[in-house]
Protein backbone atom coordinates (compact mmCIF):
# COMPACT_ATOMS: atom_id res chain seq x y z
CA UNK A 1 0.00 0.00 0.00
CA UNK A 2 2.82 2.29 0.90
CA UNK A 3 4.59 1.50 -2.33
CA UNK A 4 1.47 2.54 -4.23
CA UNK A 5 1.51 5.90 -2.56
CA UNK A 6 5.23 6.17 -3.13
CA UNK A 7 4.87 5.54 -6.84
CA UNK A 8 2.08 8.11 -6.93
CA UNK A 9 4.49 10.60 -5.45
CA UNK A 10 7.33 9.68 -7.77
CA UNK A 11 5.15 9.95 -10.81
CA UNK A 12 3.89 13.28 -9.56
CA UNK A 13 7.48 14.52 -9.27
CA UNK A 14 7.79 14.05 -13.04
CA UNK A 15 5.80 17.26 -13.33
CA UNK A 16 9.08 19.09 -12.87
CA UNK A 17 11.19 17.07 -15.26
CA UNK A 18 12.31 18.11 -18.73
CA UNK A 19 10.31 16.55 -21.54
CA UNK A 20 11.96 14.01 -23.78
CA UNK A 21 9.78 14.57 -26.82
CA UNK A 22 11.49 15.93 -29.91
CA UNK A 23 9.23 18.33 -31.77
CA UNK A 24 9.46 16.70 -35.20
CA UNK A 25 9.12 18.07 -37.89
CA UNK A 26 10.17 21.50 -36.53
CA UNK A 27 13.20 19.90 -34.95
CA UNK A 28 15.50 17.66 -36.99
CA UNK A 29 15.70 14.05 -35.90
CA UNK A 30 19.13 12.51 -35.67
CA UNK A 31 19.12 9.12 -37.37
CA UNK A 32 22.12 6.83 -36.85
CA UNK A 33 23.57 5.58 -40.15
CA UNK A 34 22.26 2.09 -39.55
CA UNK A 35 18.68 3.21 -39.03
CA UNK A 36 16.35 0.95 -40.94
CA UNK A 37 14.25 3.17 -43.15
CA UNK A 38 13.45 3.35 -46.83
CA UNK A 39 14.80 0.50 -48.95
CA UNK A 40 17.06 1.17 -51.91
CA UNK A 41 18.78 -0.95 -54.54
CA UNK A 42 22.43 -0.03 -54.90
CA UNK A 43 24.89 -0.40 -57.74
CA UNK A 44 28.27 -2.07 -57.73
CA UNK A 45 31.50 -0.04 -58.04
CA UNK A 46 31.33 -0.43 -61.83
CA UNK A 47 27.93 1.24 -61.88
CA UNK A 48 25.97 -1.91 -62.74
CA UNK A 49 22.92 -3.04 -60.83
CA UNK A 50 23.98 -5.10 -57.87
CA UNK A 51 20.75 -7.06 -57.65
CA UNK A 52 21.03 -10.45 -59.29
CA UNK A 53 17.36 -11.35 -58.76
CA UNK A 54 18.17 -14.28 -56.50
CA UNK A 55 14.84 -13.84 -54.66
CA UNK A 56 16.37 -14.27 -51.21
CA UNK A 57 15.06 -10.90 -50.00
CA UNK A 58 11.58 -11.84 -51.18
CA UNK A 59 11.61 -15.12 -49.32
CA UNK A 60 13.13 -13.56 -46.21
CA UNK A 61 10.46 -10.87 -46.08
CA UNK A 62 8.05 -11.73 -43.26
CA UNK A 63 5.22 -9.69 -44.80
CA UNK A 64 5.90 -10.87 -48.37
CA UNK A 65 6.05 -7.33 -49.66
CA UNK A 66 8.91 -7.84 -52.14
CA UNK A 67 8.30 -9.33 -55.51
CA UNK A 68 10.65 -9.56 -58.44
CA UNK A 69 11.43 -11.63 -61.49
CA UNK A 70 14.75 -12.65 -62.91
CA UNK A 71 15.96 -11.67 -66.34
CA UNK A 72 19.30 -12.31 -67.97
CA UNK A 73 21.22 -10.13 -70.39
CA UNK A 74 22.83 -11.63 -73.47
CA UNK A 75 26.12 -12.03 -71.65
CA UNK A 76 24.73 -14.08 -68.82
CA UNK A 77 24.33 -11.42 -66.15
CA UNK A 78 21.25 -11.90 -63.98
CA UNK A 79 19.22 -8.82 -63.10
CA UNK A 80 15.67 -8.17 -61.95
CA UNK A 81 13.21 -7.72 -64.77
CA UNK A 82 11.01 -5.90 -62.31
CA UNK A 83 11.51 -5.27 -58.63
CA UNK A 84 8.57 -4.14 -56.57
CA UNK A 85 8.32 -3.31 -52.89
CA UNK A 86 4.93 -2.60 -51.42
CA UNK A 87 5.92 -0.14 -48.70
CA UNK A 88 2.38 -0.04 -47.41
CA UNK A 89 3.13 -3.54 -46.13
CA UNK A 90 6.82 -3.14 -45.28
CA UNK A 91 7.69 -3.31 -41.59
CA UNK A 92 11.29 -2.14 -42.05
CA UNK A 93 12.66 -5.20 -40.27
CA UNK A 94 15.76 -5.34 -42.46
CA UNK A 95 15.58 -9.08 -43.06
CA UNK A 96 15.89 -8.44 -46.81
CA UNK A 97 19.13 -6.57 -46.29
CA UNK A 98 20.47 -9.39 -44.15
CA UNK A 99 19.47 -11.98 -46.72
CA UNK A 100 20.96 -10.14 -49.68
CA UNK A 101 24.12 -11.91 -50.84
CA UNK A 102 25.25 -9.04 -53.04
CA UNK A 103 24.66 -6.01 -50.76
CA UNK A 104 22.19 -4.77 -53.33
CA UNK A 105 19.22 -4.15 -51.10
CA UNK A 106 19.91 -1.70 -48.28
CA UNK A 107 17.82 0.12 -45.71
CA UNK A 108 18.73 3.77 -45.39
CA UNK A 109 18.01 6.38 -42.67
CA UNK A 110 14.98 7.92 -44.34
CA UNK A 111 11.49 7.36 -43.15
CA UNK A 112 9.67 10.33 -44.63
CA UNK A 113 7.64 8.49 -47.22
CA UNK A 114 4.03 8.90 -46.19
CA UNK A 115 1.45 9.20 -48.96
CA UNK A 116 -2.23 9.97 -49.13
CA UNK A 117 -2.81 7.23 -51.70
CA UNK A 118 -1.69 3.72 -50.80
CA UNK A 119 -0.94 2.95 -54.42
CA UNK A 120 1.88 5.49 -54.26
CA UNK A 121 3.56 3.34 -51.62
CA UNK A 122 4.28 0.70 -54.23
CA UNK A 123 7.82 1.32 -55.40
CA UNK A 124 9.10 -0.13 -58.65
CA UNK A 125 12.72 -0.71 -59.61
CA UNK A 126 13.08 2.81 -61.01
CA UNK A 127 12.04 4.23 -57.67
CA UNK A 128 14.36 1.98 -55.70
CA UNK A 129 17.55 2.05 -57.71
CA UNK A 130 20.17 4.56 -56.57
CA UNK A 131 23.28 5.67 -58.40
CA UNK A 132 25.86 4.68 -55.79
CA UNK A 133 27.09 1.74 -53.81
CA UNK A 134 25.47 2.66 -50.50
CA UNK A 135 27.04 1.24 -47.38
CA UNK A 136 29.45 -1.19 -49.02
CA UNK A 137 31.58 0.73 -51.47
CA UNK A 138 33.90 -2.05 -52.67
CA UNK A 139 31.90 -5.21 -53.09
CA UNK A 140 31.11 -6.55 -56.53
CA UNK A 141 29.39 -9.94 -56.48
CA UNK A 142 30.27 -10.89 -60.02
CA UNK A 143 33.98 -10.42 -59.29
CA UNK A 144 33.62 -13.26 -56.80
CA UNK A 145 31.11 -15.52 -58.50
CA UNK A 146 32.08 -18.14 -61.03
CA UNK A 147 29.60 -17.19 -63.73
CA UNK A 148 30.88 -15.50 -66.84
CA UNK A 149 29.23 -12.12 -67.42
CA UNK A 150 29.93 -9.17 -69.65
CA UNK A 151 33.42 -7.89 -68.90
CA UNK A 152 34.43 -10.96 -66.91
CA UNK A 153 35.13 -14.30 -68.52
CA UNK A 154 35.53 -17.67 -66.87
CA UNK A 155 38.55 -17.86 -64.65
CA UNK A 156 38.79 -14.09 -64.20
CA UNK A 157 37.04 -13.87 -60.88
CA UNK A 158 38.85 -13.64 -57.55
CA UNK A 159 40.61 -16.86 -56.55
CA UNK A 160 40.12 -18.49 -59.91
CA UNK A 161 42.45 -20.33 -62.22
CA UNK A 162 42.32 -20.01 -65.96
CA UNK A 163 39.73 -22.43 -67.45
CA UNK A 164 40.87 -25.98 -68.01
CA UNK A 165 40.99 -27.61 -71.39
CA UNK A 166 39.35 -30.98 -70.73
CA UNK A 167 40.88 -32.44 -73.87
CA UNK A 168 44.41 -31.81 -72.69
CA UNK A 169 46.35 -34.67 -71.18
CA UNK A 170 48.96 -32.48 -69.58
CA UNK A 171 49.27 -33.24 -65.88
Amino acid sequence: MLSQLRSLWWVFLHTFRKRDTLQYPEEEVYLPPRTRGRIVLSRDPDGEERCVACNLCAVACPVDCISLAKAEDDQGRWYPDFFRINFSRCIYCGMCEEACPTYAIQLIPDFEMAEYDRANMVYEKDDLLIAGTGKYPDYNFYRVAGMAVGGKDKGEAENEDYPIDPKSLMP
Binding site: V11, F12, H14, T15, R17, K18, R19, D20, T21, Q23
Partner: peptide, 8 residues
Amino acid sequence: LGLWQDRY
Protein backbone atom coordinates in the same frame (compact mmCIF):
# COMPACT_ATOMS: atom_id res chain seq x y z
CA LEU B 1 -0.40 11.96 -18.61
CA GLY B 2 2.10 13.50 -20.99
CA LEU B 3 3.36 15.76 -18.22
CA TRP B 4 3.91 12.85 -15.86
CA GLN B 5 5.49 10.74 -18.58
CA ASP B 6 7.94 13.45 -19.69
CA ARG B 7 6.25 14.17 -22.97
CA TYR B 8 3.78 16.71 -24.32
